[in-house]
Nucleic acid binder design. Structure first.
Lengths: 206, 206
DNA sequence: GCCCTGCCATACACAGGTGTATGGTGATCC
DNA sequence: GGATCACCATACACCTGTGTATGGCAGGGC
């Protein structure tokens, strides 16, 4: 068994992460997806070519085919994140809920549980920490935050708040949403679901 | 000039960071302090012995005198953080403000400006991201959060809120406080100082 | 004046990561 | 059925970091 085949076995080597079975060839988006896993686990500095290649079951040769260098991957990740984050804002919920109050309430109820949400939260944190030293990352974060705050403010405005009050409410709402990725409560001191009324408000006070 | 002195020049090599002139010998706390700088800049993985030594103007030989290994430094950092964070909660403000409302208001007004606050915020974020994969870091964060939430809840209780409502308010207050380290507003869309009334509340709403 | 101890430098072996150069596959087109 | 191309493996030179072993300087006790 000198094993000089093109690759030992076509798929099972890459079956570890979650790739169903895309024949054999990898595209750039597969690298980006795996890169987000590493980002969530160890921050932007953990997004390294070598571990990435090992996780995908290939060698660095593949990476440097799809990307010029590590920085190119980082840029691709930012682009992908902006796209996904933009998409996420009021798309699914926008269809599933009718009035603004319900939309806000369901947005606040979304996260925290499930490994998928934890991954997303970790990515958010990692990118925001990354943004402290990277210009482009900072720019992306700023755009996303602005966009989300605008959207939430719109919802609060629909609920009858004056523009200024709506913007304040939106910020507080966003802060409460984000805090779930940061503040650690001891599991059964779970206040989150009781928080909706306080943040969203049952009556106006703008 | 074969230069076989003990160290080329006693102090100026270490004058870069901010050490005034502590003669020559370094103690463990000096390493920990510098480690927090690296932590704030690049996360826990950036806290490496070599860059740390270079920043302090010494070699790794010094480090391995004061610490067994890298992990020992990490533990020392956690210990120091817990100590400082514990100290910080309602010490300065506890003396400078009289009633609970004023204490909360001044707490919310504290951060964000100044490089010292930015450093502290970065450290908070870095430790919380670190806590996602490190047991001890997670434990430290949990303790600190619990302690802070208790303190804030006490203040809200002093303002006449019922225990449950006080805990909810405390969480929201803490979330608003933390959010300043995460959410990026475009500098002149600064809502923070207008946020106090909304978070702290000018009237009760149980 | 010696010895011991606190503090640090130096050198070494090793691991892991980057980027480049180059070669080797399978599939495809024609 | 030979040429071409997309995709990946392999090998190389280089750099940065870890931990260990050891040596060396300084200063204080005595």
């Amino acid at each position: 068994m000198v094993s000089l085949q093109h690759r030992a076995k076509p798929t099972p080597a890459r079956a570890a992460p979650k790739a169903p079975a895309p024949a054999t060839p990898l595209d750039a988006s597969a690298w980006v997806e795996a890169a987000f896993d590493l980002l969530a686990e160890g921050g932007i500095d953990a997004v390294r070519v070598d571990p990435l290649a090992k996780r995908l079951g290939v060698t660095r040769g593949s990476f440097y085919w799809h990307f010029k260098d590590r920085d190119a991957l980082h840029k691709a990740m930012l682009k992908q994140w902006r796209k996904a984050a933009t998409y996420q804002v009021g798309d699914r919920i926008e269809r599933e809920a009718a009035d603004a109050g319900e939309k806000l309430r369901r947005t606040l109820a979304l996260p925290y549980s499930g490994p998928k949400a934890k991954r997303a939260a970790a990515i958010e944190m990692a990118i925001r920490f990354w943004a402290r030293r990277d210009e482009e990352a900072a720019h992306a974060v700023q755009l996303i935050d602005h966009q989300r705050l605008l959207y939430y403010a719109k919802l609060f405005a629909e609920r009858g708040h004056a523009p200024d009050a709506a913007r304040r409410r939106a910020y507080l709402f966003y802060a409460a949403l984000m805090s779930e990725a940061i503040i650690v409560t001891d599991e059964q001191t779970d206040i989150r679901h009781e928080l909706a009324d306080l943040v969203i408000g049952t009556r106006d006070e703008g």
